[in-house]
Design a protein around this nucleic acid. Sequence first.
RNA 1: GAGAAUAUAGCUCAGUCGGUAGAGCAUCUGCCUUUUAAGCAGAGGGUCGAAGGUUCGAGUCCUUCUAUUCUCACCA
Length: 514
Amino acid sequence: MSKENAQNPDNQHTPDQTPQLSLNDQMQRRLEERQHLLDAGINPYPCHFDVTSFSLDIIANFREEAKEPVAVAGRIMTIRKMGKASFFHIQDSKGKIQIYLKKDEVGDTAYDTFKLLDIGDIVGVKGYTFKTRTGEISVHAESFELLSKSLRPIPVPKEKEVDGEKVVFDAFSDREQRYRQRYVDLIVNPEVRQTFIKRSAVVSFMRQFFSSQGWLEVETPILQPIYGGAAARPFTTHHNALDMELYLRIANELYLKRLIVGGFDGVFEFAKDFRNEGIDRFHNPEFTQVELYVAYKDYNWMMELVEELFYRTALEVNKSEVTLFLGNEISLKPPFKRLSIIDAIEEYCGKNIRGKSEVELRNVAKDLGLELDPKISSGKIIDEIFGEFVEPKLIQPTFITDYPTEMSPLAKEHRSQPGIVERFELIVGGKEVCNSFSELNDPVVQRERLESQAKLRQRGDEEAMIVDEDFLRALEYGMPPCAGLGIGIDRMVMLITGQDSIRDVIFFPHMKPE
RNA sequence: GAGAAUAUAGCUCAGUCGGUAGAGCAUCUGCCUUUUAAGCAGAGGGUCGAAGGUUCGAGUCCUUCUAUUCUCACCA
């Protein structure tokens, strides 16, 4: 599999050749058992096994009168040896099923081999279905086969049913170990597996939803010579042959809009984006965002699309429009509340800031007890007030609309109100989950906006955007009116699956080296 | 970047006033042919996160470091 193995034909280590495994007594014993198996002519790592049935299907389709022949494979999770007969559970991709193994049925040699197996080993079993005296649907083994010997002890928790509720003892719960060794987490914590299955279902449903509208799924550069489309610091890398700096994308917005210029009616991309910023339970340095651009539409149309998308995704994945997120019961049933950012501040702070000057806004912030950086201007002040006093209170899905122009250099000026743009964010549980606007398509205005960003940058704002001449050239050819949308997939999955940390919806969250 | 908490057996955790390491599960040996947190009898397993220091003596007290978790800051 790996290059190291390919270069090392002698990877049939004997125990004393593998000091890198840092053996404890349990691993030592398992290595010895592996050797015993090899000595007995049993390959502990054969090539294939023909599976005919899966655990939960066997249980679902069980009929008392029929002994169905089955071949199942999976990892041994429990063993109960009772002298000349044994019970064990194997776990496959769908769940667990009990196996019953009797010495006088499989033979002495096979039974002795079975006694060398451990919790964690992967086996294939052929036999027939039956129900035990205590009523558990099981497989009566006629033969079994070791498919992979496990060398490390697996922290399998003990489970007990109390009044139909499953009680778990000594669960593998150390977060650090769970994230660093996600494979172990997935083996022993079934709810973790379910979360990631749901994540996959969310993405496939969205993909199907977008595709069925006739929009095109596309791929755009991750390595970008000029990064843009968001306000964030990038990761920088270097291309050797070209001897040039490249940036890992912080967004793909500007590339997708080039494709709208190119004549597609709708394009979307599920994109890994990278932002060189802090890590906490809502932020991972690489995260997934879907961006969607649809020609001839505006942000009002997009709000309706987002309502439908969230609602239908919840129904599809959870069979319910209700979800528990950050301790709150959330309903994703449309319509979602809509509030302009100015109205939201009035509603939650009792302050009318409509038409206020920068000095007046500063006084409002002061009244509310907010310390402000003296350098920031009106738009940022409004954003600060909103972020501090309003956003955390928006628990049920709420569209916040009509942001100050200076905070949104890629959005189109509002059709009837000066100084603000046609933009919305969807806030759920006090957190932003998506961002959208009627896209700015006037190349002259866009150039002015980017140039004023460049000035902010010169004054030390590291997150201000860079002038992207090729993007402006594309707009100069003419981009139709267009609605754009970005949804943070990780946060959306947190919402749908009820997880309170982004690390619980990303298989391998970023960790410092061990 | 700041603060708080945590780090002891494969897993989950105790460990008192500083006196030389404990439990349950897992593992090993023996018994047990429908068990299910199987049971019964016995056994092994520890660089107490790392490095210094105080002390006759440190899992325990002090200092530094590392990682994780939470909160804040930064940030969507």
